[in-house]
């Protein structure tokens, strides 16, 4: 098995001096290609902080992070953009779709930065939206979609580039039970096709469905459990 993510003594501190917040303290994680990892922990335990660093949206204060054997600290701005574009799909709790832009355009967008031709983009975006069950909502703008639908657009946007891993920060946090099930099912399907999935969740149900659960408390890993497949 190949390692997608390797994190070594990773720390993240916000602020300095008396007001410093130690969001992550010397965290060590290794994630294999094709794994399905749930990250759990109380509010403020550092889950989002970890996830943002894994997604190259933020930089650690200390420690090392390798993604596919690339030391992220060595990458410049341009190379980081390539990593985000080629290797990572990010799903946010608050969807983060581009406002006033159709679902189809939103899903097309990441492919544009990969140099995919327009026709090809259109085709694959439509395919991805169909896969998440939104074939009839392609021309809708985010504000014309329900929360669950918006999150499905966001998942389509994350998976359409066929990234090495999809990172989802509480993807169902703002959704009802029915939508939650749909979203989880989508993530599992993605994982079955070989994509590494890391998902932050508060729900035991989600965690049970994962192959591996990492629990954080006050920025430290207190449990890292893997179930046999």
């Amino acid at each position: 098995m190949t390692t997608v993510v390797k994190v070594n003594n990773l720390s993240k501190t916000y602020g300095a001096g008396d007001t410093a917040v130690y969001a992550l303290k010397k965290v060590n994680i290794e994630i294999e290609q094709g794994d399905f990892v749930a990250i759990m922990g109380a509010s403020g335990s550092g889950k989002s902080t970890l996830m943002n660093i894994l997604g190259c949206l933020d930089a650690p204060t200390e420690g090392n992070y390798w993604i596919r054997n690339l030391d992220v600290a060595d990458l410049d701005e341009e190379q980081l953009a390539v990593v985000r574009s080629q290797l990572i799909g990010f799903v946010f709790q608050s969807f983060n779709l581009i406002p006033r832009t159709s679902a189809l355009r939103n899903v097309e967008l990441p492919m544009a930065y990969q140099g995919v031709s327009r026709a090809e983009r259109r085709r694959r975006a439509a395919e991805a939206l169909t896969a998440v069950g939104l074939a009839d909502r392609m021309e809708h703008q985010p504000h014309e979609l329900s929360g669950g639908q918006q999150q499905r657009v966001a998942i389509a946007r994350a998976l359409v580039t066929e990234p090495a891993m999809v990172l989802a920060d509480e993807p169902t946090g703002a959704l009802d039970t029915a939508s939650t099930h749909e979203i989880l099912e989508l993530l599992h399907e993605l994982n079955r096709k070989g994509t590494t999935v890391v998902v932050i969740t508060h729900e035991e149900e989600v965690a049970r469905a994962a192959r591996r659960v990492i629990r954080l408390r006050d920025g430290e890993i207190i449990e890292d459990r893997t179930w046999a497949a």
Binding site: R84, I88, N96, I98, R157
Partner: peptide
């Protein structure tokens, strides 16, 4: 919006 663009891989 610029943050979203960067998160999905847009170069500066």
């Amino acid at each position: 919006e610029i943050g979203i663009l960067k998160a999905i891989g847009a170069p500066k």
